[in-house]
Design a protein around this nucleic acid. Structure first.
Length: 624
DNA sequence: ATAGCCTTGAGA
DNA sequence: TCTCAAGGCTAT
């Protein structure tokens, strides 16, 4: 697809759960005065809602709309979005049965009423992109009742009323391309276009940084505690059933510009995702669960005109291709020698893919008020502690490469050299993680492993990035008399084609004043990552660590623009790492990775369908 | 597997 | 009592 450049694949959900945007959206409605853009006052919205509810002719204008997924007729709000009945059913089946699809084309198939059956992968992706919420599918399958989205649906309705009344041609159907989720259509991912330091400064909205304001976060959270609750849900996501798709002919329709926009939008639609189970409120939850902060409805397009954005940033297309970081990871069941496709769909969590009535499914306890206050107003400074844990780290890569250069002159294969370095760094990474209290003491082994599996490549790149910024990274490692390996090749796990990209990011970070706090933030945020969290049993610990890190980081980096810029670059690095990871995975599958690199092989070779059966090496390393 | 229609039930 | 967004059922 057109969004690819040098294999540089955009990960939309690199931003999944990414706080700046979610909270920006959330607070946008709550505090209408934050921006000087044409905001709708929430009180006014509610008033309008009530008023409109008394006016039959405006009661349900949204039912005239086209489903934002397929364009069919909307039948109501379903899982957070006004959709048609078929997309509702499709989404429900997908989530309930934990299906995972694979697109046999470029993940940009057209999804409309006539061809929505062709590619469930793209259809599901579009559902998510447009704002359907996995959490709204009930884990316990309880029928009837109301969920806690009710108030959001109401606000969204009110907002629509307002728009319709303001807009000429009241009552006209809104084109299907207009994202209609009450969950904010995603914030355009500015870091994608921020190839230079200068442009990013011009495009970043101040409000984006509100996530880092812990007090706002607290306020958001408090408000949520008072909101109605869902009957019973969890944060499960479809991920476990293999859906082979044979004989699919990719849609070859011309992709209009708005589809690019939709993919941009998809980034933020993925944000925020947990709904607390009220039944758990009485339990003594130990941790804050910041993702309980929900998006609030607001008119995203008043902030960002996508068409305008693309006009201003044509280079966006270079990056645009939303997929999740996780989806970009080598997800194939590596133990299967028959599997050759990189994006092989997998079965995880056992073979009981459709057995979702298990009472053992993870639930997320709510924090107590005390815990919330402690987390937000207490003296916790995880970042500060973590910076201390990082002392000496800055020299390590340099030392490692020096040793590598000295002691492995017999290695004349740059890739082997790279793998050796990766293996060494992985060993160090595991040891490092083991020293982290939050990691070691508060996470079960399974969860520790999930985090490592999903973060090692990124942390590896972060380490090299930091060394490069500090000027501690030699340009090359000399392997033989006339054979030198660029250090960047090792950083990128052998994907030398991204050297320029990486160097650009290094230069950006260097220019913005990347320091040891940022390094710690990068490293720890990478470790306590959303993808690993998704597979984890105890998601709250991971979530609270991440939230606290963000808050600490924000406290440290008081300049919102600089912080946003750092965060954006963090995301760019993450995407780069996942791309390299994927490339390496391909080589691993091709048998290029020496199995004697045991830890690396385990990282690359884990079978996601057996994540609960611990491979030996990493487990023993963690235990040791 | 899909999609249209039916049933359910908490909240307004 | 009504609403409407959940899940269920079933013909295709």
């Amino acid at each position: 697809m057109g969004g690819a450049n040098d294999g540089w694949v955009m990960a939309g959900s690199a931003l999944r759960g990414s706080p700046p945007f979610s909270l920006r959206m959330a607070t946008a409605v709550v505090s209408a005065g934050v921006s000087n853009t044409t905001f709708v006052d929430p009180q006014q919205l509610l008033a309008t809602s009530v008023a409109n509810s008394l006016q039959p002719r405006f009661e349900r204008p949204q039912l005239d709309e086209a489903c934002p997924v397929c364009g069919d007729k909307v039948s109501g709000y379903h899982y957070g979005l006004l959709t048609c009945e078929s997309c509702k059913g499709f989404f429900k089946r997908t989530v309930q049965n934990k299906k995972l699809y694979q697109c046999s084309a470029d993940q940009n198939c057209t999804v409309d009423k006539s061809c929505r059956k062709r590619c469930p992968s793209c259809r599901y992706k579009k559902c998510i992109d447009q704002g359907m919420k996995v959490e709204a599918v009930r884990e316990d399958r309880m029928r009837g009742g109301r969920n806690k989205f009710g108030s959001y649906y109401k606000k969204d309705r009110a907002q629509r009323m307002q728009r319709l009344q303001v807009r000429p041609g009241v009552g006209a159907p809104i084109p299907s391309q207009t994202p209609s989720a009450f969950f904010p259509p995603p914030q355009i991912d500015q870091h994608l276009v921020a190839n230079s330091v200068t442009d990013v400064r011009t495009v970043l909205p101040q409000t984006t940084m509100q996530y880092f304001d812990q007090h706002k976060l607290k306020a958001e959270y408090d408000s949520l505690l008072q909101s109605p609750t869902l009957s019973s849900t969890s944060t499960h996501s479809p991920q476990h059933v293999v859906i082979p798709r044979a004989g699919y002919v990719p849609n070859c329709d011309t992709v209009p510009i708005h589809s690019e926009i939709q993919r941009i939008d998809s980034l933020a639609a993925l944000l925020g995702s947990s709904i607390e189970d009220p039944s758990l409120r009485s339990q003594a939850a130990q941790y804050l669960y910041p993702q309980a902060v929900k998006h609030e409805a607001f008119d995203y397009h008043r902030y960002h005109d996508p068409q305008l954005f693309v006009q201003q940033h044509p280079e966006y297309g270079v990056f645009a291709q939303p997929t999740t970081y996780a989806s970009m990871l080598p997800v194939a069941p590596l133990s299967s020698s028959t599997s050759s496709a990189l994006r092989t769909v997998l079965v995880a969590g056992g073979s009981s893919g459709s057995n979702r009535s298990s009472p053992l499914l993870p639930v997320c306890p709510l924090p107590t008020e005390k815990i919330i206050d402690t987390a937000f107003y207490g003296k916790q400074n995880i970042l500060g502690m973590m910076v201390e844990k990082m002392s000496g780290e800055e020299l390590r890569i340099q030392q490692m490469l020096e040793i590598l250069g000295r002691s492995n002159v017999h290695i004349i294969d740059p890739f082997k050299c790279t793998m050796l370095a990766a293996e060494q760094n992985l060993n160090h990474l595991v040891s490092w993680a083991k020293e982290i209290t939050y990691f070691k003491d508060q996470l079960e082994m399974d969860d520790q492993m999930h985090l490592l599996y999903t973060s090692w490549a990124f942390i590896h790149l972060i380490d090299f990035t930091n060394a490069a910024i500090l000027g501690l990274l030699p340009n090359t490692i000399k392997l033989a008399a006339n054979l030198e390996v660029p250090s960047g090749l090792i950083a990128l796990l052998g994907s030398g084609i991204y050297l320029t990209k990486w160097q650009t990011l290094v230069a950006q970070l260097s220019q913005i004043g990347f320091d040891k706090y940022d390094f710690a933030a990068f490293r720890f945020l990478a470790l306590f990552n959303e993808e690993g969290q998704r597979s984890a049993k105890d998601r709250t610990v991971i979530e609270v660590v991440r939230a606290t890190l963000y808050a600490n980081w924000g406290e440290y980096r008081r300049d919102p623009q600089r912080l946003q810029y750092l965060y954006n670059t963090f995301q760019s690095l993450k995407i780069l790492a996942s791309t390299c990871h994927q490339h390496l995975y391909e080589r691993y599958r091709a048998g290029e990775v020496d199995p004697s690199a045991s830890l690396l092989s385990e990282m690359l070779g884990r079978d996601p369908s057996h994540t609960r059966t611990h491979p030996t090496y990493i487990q023993s390393t963690i235990i040791a």
